Amino acid sequence: MMRGKNGRARSVAAVALLASCTAVLGAGSPQGAVLPEAQRTAQAPQRGQQEQAGGDCDVYKSVPPSGEDGPAVKAIKAKRSLVIGIDLNSYRWGARNPDTGQIEGFDIDLARAIGTAIMGDPDKVTLKAVPTADRIKFIQEGRVDMIVRTMTITCDRLEQVAFSRPYFNTSQRVVVPKSSPARSLDEALNGATVCAAAGSSAQDELKNHPVKQVVSVENHLDCLVLMQLGKVDATMTDDALAASQAAQDQTVRVVDGEIRPGVMGIAMLKTSTDLTARVNQVLADYYGSGAWRGTYDRWLKPYLLNDADHYWPVQH
């Protein structure tokens, strides 16, 4: 299943750009990013899916929204800076545009909207890159006030940090080189060397599959580099991130099948209840105003192809 010398040679230029894990590759809507029809029509996760969340909890549960400033919000305003942890390695979610130098993407728009709503001034919002494996650590150590970074809500994580209400439906998908004979998720994983970001839901999910080896990396984009080098057979990551990898590099594709449905949320300290309530109010306003749908259409629709309503979590 490994890529041969020819495949490696074709990837030299891409690897040079991706090695820094900050480059944004490609533009437009490459065909490789399109998800198969069977996968695009999968049902969104439902409330109470404890097994997928990794335990017995309600991943939709959060504090009621509020526009009031409590002690946590007042403390942030007193220091005159709201620090939001983001990703710089996910095309269309959070990455630096090499042409403009600007950080952009779906999560970046959301982070700026939350920051501006709370602080009243975009200049008082600081976006800080955080590795996948360090998301919870950065919150607990006070290095960021919140994480807006394709973070799936799980029961284990709910024991460590607080989450906003969910803002995006997700599931786990597998990416392989186009030269791979695998056509399904099971075929891609069986006896394979599979890459996943450390501390991710994908890394946890791979414990349940007959893989040969799991290669753990700091950020999911590192997996794309390893696939290009022929060092791993496949990558498991969130469906939206899988689509972004296929959009970046037309030598890889997303195989049929998805598992572990879940939802993404914004993570904060468990003691910052009033901050969580403020974020939930911003999310309600952001969706109600049409801004959520607008940024989905701008950044993600060309690659996921589903209507925005498919990805907005609805409590049942």
Rank of each mutant, 00 (worst) to 15 (best):
V314Y: 09
S29Q: 13
T237A: 03
P210W: 13
I259L: 13
Y311N: 09
T295R: 10
R3L: 12
P122Y: 08
T271A: 15
E68L: 13
Q248C: 09
D156I: 00
S29V: 02
D121K: 02
T193Y: 05
R165T: 04
A182Q: 07
W93I: 03
D186S: 08
I259Y: 07
D58W: 12
A196C: 00
V194N: 03
P166L: 00
R92S: 11
V211K: 08
A246I: 07
W292K: 08
I103R: 10
V83H: 03
E205C: 09
N280V: 09
A246M: 06
R10D: 00
A291L: 09
C195L: 06
P131G: 13
S184H: 14
L241P: 00
L221A: 10
E141L: 07
D297E: 15
N97Y: 02
V83C: 08
K270P: 14
G115A: 08
I103H: 13
M1V: 15
V63H: 15
R183C: 03
V174G: 12
R8W: 12
S81Y: 01
G67Q: 11
Q245P: 03
V211A: 00
I84T: 02
N208R: 15
T235A: 10
H316N: 09
L224D: 10
V24E: 06
F138P: 00
D186H: 15
L275G: 05
N280G: 14
C155G: 08
P64Y: 14
P166Q: 01
A277H: 04
A247Q: 11
V194S: 03
Q250S: 11
L241Q: 12
T271S: 14
L35V: 14
G230H: 09
D256M: 09
V215Y: 06
L300P: 09
A13I: 10
V73H: 07
M151G: 01
V12H: 04
V211H: 08
A284N: 13
Q281V: 06
D204A: 11
S164D: 01
E258Q: 12
S289R: 14
M1I: 07
G230K: 07
R92E: 05
P30I: 15
Q172R: 05
H310S: 08
D309G: 03
A19F: 11
Q49G: 11
Q43T: 13
S171F: 14
D109V: 06
V252G: 07
Q160K: 15
E141A: 06
D256S: 14
